[in-house]
Simulated assay, not measured.
Amino acid sequence: MSKNILEVRDLKVSFRTYAGEVQAVRGVSFDLKKGEVLAIVGESGCGKSVTAQTIMRLIPTPPSMIKSGSIKFDGKTEITKISNREMEKIRGSEMGMIFQDPMTSLNPTMTIGKQIAEGLIKHQGLSASEARKRAVEILKMVGISNPEGRITQYPHEFSGGMRQRVMIAIALACNPKLLIADEPTTALDVTIQAQIIELMKKLSEQTEASIIVITHDLGVVAEMAQRVIVMYAGKVVEQGTVDELFYDSKHPYTWGLLRSVPRLDQDKDGELVPIPGTPPDLFAPPKGCAFAARCPYAMKACLEVDPEHTKLSETHSAACWLLHPDAPKVERPVEAGGAAR
């Protein structure tokens, strides 16, 4: 049996529009080990959420289409090949998802208890009374006080942080093997963010669920994840452990992300360094490296040929021509994750 709960290989996903085909995901490959927390980071529009929702088969077809690739779940199920009915059995029971905005994801006409019980009744065959009892237990597990009274209330009666806890409760109700959290701390204040992160870490340890966290917040990455994938223009440009990405990153785009985050060990008057320019148009992606137009180290080869991934260690790889033996030596900026090496 594979040690990986998820194996994604050369995944390509496009959207048909009146203006043409948007190549949202362009050959993404990665593994997720059982019990591991993996973060996917990158700018808006880089393909993070599309990749996650494709794994869950939540993107409507049409306009989306999986052009090629494989998504193997739990070593045996090929997600791209199974029917919608078969996917419905997996989604909610073996895979759970925490969406970005709990207020629009929760049903405003149903009580919290019914929304948690729904999956338990469908996937685990519990009776209404058994599901209600289990719903109370789950709400207590995610840190909601007075769960017996809360299950009869509606989403608008909960604060933003509590609604996010409810979303986590719904996602975890059937003890899934895989949990995908899409920007789980967006729009929450820093105190509630810290509580949600701590809660997800604790639940991951208790349930042994594998987690994919999609985020812009590198603080969330440092706090939660063991491994990180950096995406740009629909592709993985670098991946490695948290320490490798923060302290020994090799791709200029990763450096740019790290330089744009405030740090406690820098002068308080120091300015953040944004990445200049804008991401490429995915209606017609460039033939070379997609980051070349924004990269201060770009060479002629970068504009002509898309680089392959260079393996730097068993866990670390990056797709950049600067890693070629004949490329000029470039030092990582000091502010990109600590002292340059």
Rank of each mutant, 00 (worst) to 15 (best):
E335V: 07
Q100E: 08
A336F: 03
V330Y: 00
V41H: 03
K34Y: 08
K329Y: 00
T315G: 03
S14G: 00
M1C: 10
L126C: 12
F158D: 11
E208N: 15
Y253M: 04
V273N: 13
E137W: 01
H156A: 10
K3A: 08
I214K: 07
V190N: 07
I90N: 11
V22E: 07
S2I: 09
I170V: 15
L303C: 08
E244K: 04
E304G: 12
H156S: 04
P325M: 08
G161R: 09
Y247T: 09
E238Q: 00
P274G: 01
R26S: 13
A225C: 04
L258G: 01
N4G: 02
W255F: 14
E137T: 06
T241R: 06
Y247P: 02
R263W: 02
R341D: 05
S313F: 00
L139M: 15
I212K: 10
Y297D: 12
V37Q: 08
D10R: 01
G27L: 10
G161Y: 09
T310E: 14
A339Q: 07
S210D: 15
N84Y: 09
A169V: 13
I197L: 13
V142M: 04
M162S: 09
G161K: 14
W321P: 00
Q195S: 03
S249I: 00
P280N: 15
C295L: 01
M231C: 10
Q206S: 06
G288Q: 14
F246N: 02
K76M: 10
T77N: 08
T80K: 06
V41G: 06
K33A: 04
E7W: 03
M299C: 05
T109N: 12
L188P: 05
E86T: 12
A171S: 02
L218S: 09
S260W: 13
E183G: 08
V142A: 07
E94L: 15
D10V: 04
K114S: 14
A181C: 00
F291A: 07
P328S: 01
I151P: 11
K300W: 02
V190W: 03
F73E: 09
H123I: 06
C295M: 01
C302K: 05
N175H: 02
E157W: 04
A52Y: 00
V236N: 08
S260L: 09
M97Q: 11
R134A: 10
H123P: 03
P328D: 00
F283S: 10
Q53N: 15
E36F: 02
A319Q: 04
K114Y: 14
A19I: 14
M110G: 05
